[in-house]
């Protein structure tokens, strides 16, 4: 490895940097996953939450 971990600072810099990149990637991708999960919901605004038969009442 080019930059071996010697100090605690090295370790924290490496692990936290990767974690921050991962978290940003997650924050960007999760809305897409939520949309993927819910975009075929027939009518999520109905108060009783039951699945409609395709018609809005």
């Amino acid at each position: 490895m080019d930059n071996p971990i010697v100090t605690l600072h090295d370790f924290m810099l490496r692990t936290e940097s990767i974690t921050y990149i991962l978290v940003v990637a997650v924050l960007v991708s999760f809305p897409f996953f939520w949309r993927f999960l819910t975009d075929r919901d027939e009518d999520s605004t109905r108060p009783d939450g039951e699945h409609s038969s395709g018609k809005h009442h």
Partner: peptide
């Protein structure tokens, strides 16, 4: 649907776990 959502979060947490312990 709830399980899909929680599993997605669990997957991310596990990957961050690897990152945190390098």
């Amino acid at each position: 649907k709830a399980a899909a959502w929680v599993l997605a979060g669990y997957f991310v947490m596990k990957v961050i776990g690897i990152a945190q312990t390098d």
